[in-house]
Amino acid sequence: MSKSKNDYSNRQHMYRKDYELFYYKDMQFKNVSLHHHDFFEVYFFVKGEVRYQIEGRNYHLVPGDILLVNHKELHQVLIENPDHYYERYVLWLNKDYLRSLSSGRTDLTRCFLDQEKKTLLRTSMENHQLIRGILDKLHYQNKEDGFGADLLPKALLTELMIELNRMSFEEDKLQPQVKKNQLIDSVISFINEHLEEEINMDLLAAEFFISKYHLSREFKKYTGTTLYRFVVQKRLIKAKGLILEGNPITSVYEECGFGDYSNFFRAFKNEYGLTPKEFLGVMEERKASETRADTRI
């Protein structure tokens, strides 16, 4: 079974309504800036020297490692040796599509959303081969349009997500290498719980009884960004969720701590290239298009 690599693209949005799978193999790859998606991501590491930052935790990866990233987690990859090949599979999953593959008994989104979920799965050789085998078959199906081409990807994705969920909640046999800082973990938890309130370095320094200069340095070290930038991105993630739930755009900014609408409008446009109203219009049109397609099936 032949396998061709995808040309890397820095887009962070899905074209399809179900899933997209990429197989990348790059040399001299540059770091990706801190970002999030409106969908789930399964990242399967094959080769390279990289470190992955997710919500202030740093993961030093070994071949076969799997990362499960949900739609609210800020993350980025850091290349530690650009002269080595950086090889990986990246699977994007629409949240609603994954729910549609689930059943009343089996929730396939659990490995992304459960409070006890693991972010990094360090696999045994047996599981490594199993997961890579499924990903290879799924990647091959991207180019196929023969008999069963509409059913086999769904079957492969269901099998993949069942296995990942099983692995995510079984007892750790292989201990992954995670570099984290208890202070930064606590600061990020505080931020997530107080997004609608004023948050700044002085407030956090007082809350955690620490010098703001030390906090600033440690925060940048473990998250890869500044406190201000991190808070803005987190507020925007919350704002998008509220908009999609039907909350009025003109009141969302208050619930997310932006202070005034102009600041919210500017931050949203700078981050996503769309105004809040344009974003809502795009999402409503996409949903209407999917509904029309479903009625034709």
Results as ranks from 00 to 15, higher is better:
S2E: 14
K3N: 12
K5C: 09
D7N: 10
S9E: 09
M14Y: 01
Y15P: 01
Y19H: 02
F22Y: 15
Y23A: 08
Y24V: 13
Q28L: 13
F29D: 07
L34R: 07
F40H: 13
F40E: 07
F40V: 04
E41P: 00
Y43V: 11
F45H: 11
G48I: 08
G48Q: 00
Y52P: 03
Y52N: 09
Q53H: 04
E55R: 00
L67T: 06
V69P: 00
V69N: 02
H71G: 00
K72G: 14
K72S: 15
D83Y: 08
H84L: 15
Y85K: 05
Y86P: 03
E87D: 09
R88S: 09
R88F: 13
Y89R: 03
Y89W: 07
N94P: 01
K95D: 05
L98T: 01
R99K: 15
G104C: 06
R105N: 13
R105F: 02
R105Q: 12
L108F: 06
C111S: 04
D114Y: 01
D114V: 04
M125N: 14
L138D: 12
L138Q: 09
Y140S: 10
Q141W: 08
N142Q: 08
K143C: 03
G146Y: 02
F147N: 09
A149M: 07
D150V: 12
D150G: 05
D150N: 14
L152M: 11
P153T: 14
K154H: 15
K154C: 10
L157R: 12
M161E: 07
E163D: 08
E170S: 12
E170G: 07
P176N: 11
Q177E: 15
V178F: 04
K179T: 15
Q182V: 12
I188E: 13
E193F: 00
L203Y: 05
L203M: 14
L204V: 11
A206T: 11
F208H: 02
S211C: 05
S211F: 06
H214C: 07
L215Q: 07
T226L: 11
T226P: 00
T226I: 01
L227A: 12
L227Q: 05
Q233K: 13
K234L: 00
A239H: 00
K240D: 03
L242F: 05
E245L: 10
I249N: 06
V252M: 05
E255Y: 09
E255H: 13
R266K: 13
A267Y: 14
F268H: 10
N270K: 11
T275F: 04
K277F: 13
E278P: 01
G281T: 05
G281E: 15
E284Q: 12
E285R: 10
K287S: 04
T291N: 07
R292H: 11
D294N: 03
D294I: 05
R296W: 00
